[in-house]
Design a protein around this nucleic acid. Structure first.
Lengths: 98, 98
DNA sequence: GCATCTGATCAGCCGGTGCTGACATCATCG
DNA sequence: CGATGATGTCAGCACCGGCTGATCAGATGC
């Protein structure tokens, strides 16, 4: 659960990419068509998503298919679930101030 | 599941705040002591976290206690869990490129 | 009332980060 | 091989967003 992973997933364009990839595997040209962004722009975002392990690339001839890595998304989900769980217990504790 | 909520939670300092609040309710002076940040800096972060509904403030005399809102964290967790679930099915689908 | 303390707000600065445009690379096809 | 098209890389610019410092509003205590 690195901080960089959360930051990578929180960007609007990358959120959009992740949602598109959650439906089916796509190559960059599909993402260009769906988002309207330039290919170099998308390539930069995809490199970042790869670097944090959120997606993986599969070269197929001159195309490159991208897919999500479910384990990573599960880890993020579990992270927030744990925070939610702990914070319910925390409602009973209030550290004295003075 | 607004995009602003994810961005708010993805910032390093705010991640730290959320983790501290997951353990117990704290007032700003505690957060100052724990993080080493200035009070105005923290106040800015807390205002943002309030605006996206991640935390709520309870004035108590001249102090202000903050606590997390578990439902919101659960919603974020569910959001990523849903993406993980969908992406597992998506591994079987690959949109043709040409 | 006056001093003090907590916390909020705002303007301004500044660094990180996303977008663009040009170029490089590699595969495919004629 | 030469052309085309898909993708990646990088430098440069612009803008968003976090940090700071000054100021202010309430609450507390002398």
């Amino acid at each position: 659960m690195t901080d960089e992973l959360l930051r990578a997933l929180a960007d609007p364009m990358r959120t959009r990419i992740v949602e598109l990839l959650a439906g089916e595997q796509l190559c960059v040209c599909h993402l260009v068509a769906e988002t309207g962004a330039t290919s170099s722009n998308l390539s930069n975002h995809l490199r970042l998503l790869r670097s944090v392990g959120a997606v993986e690339a599969e070269p197929a001839g001159r195309y490159t298919y991208y897919r999500l890595r479910p384990e990573v998304l599960d880890a993020v989900s579990a992270h927030y679930a744990a925070l939610a769980s702990r914070s319910r217990l925390a409602s009973a504790v209030k550290r004295p101030c003075a």
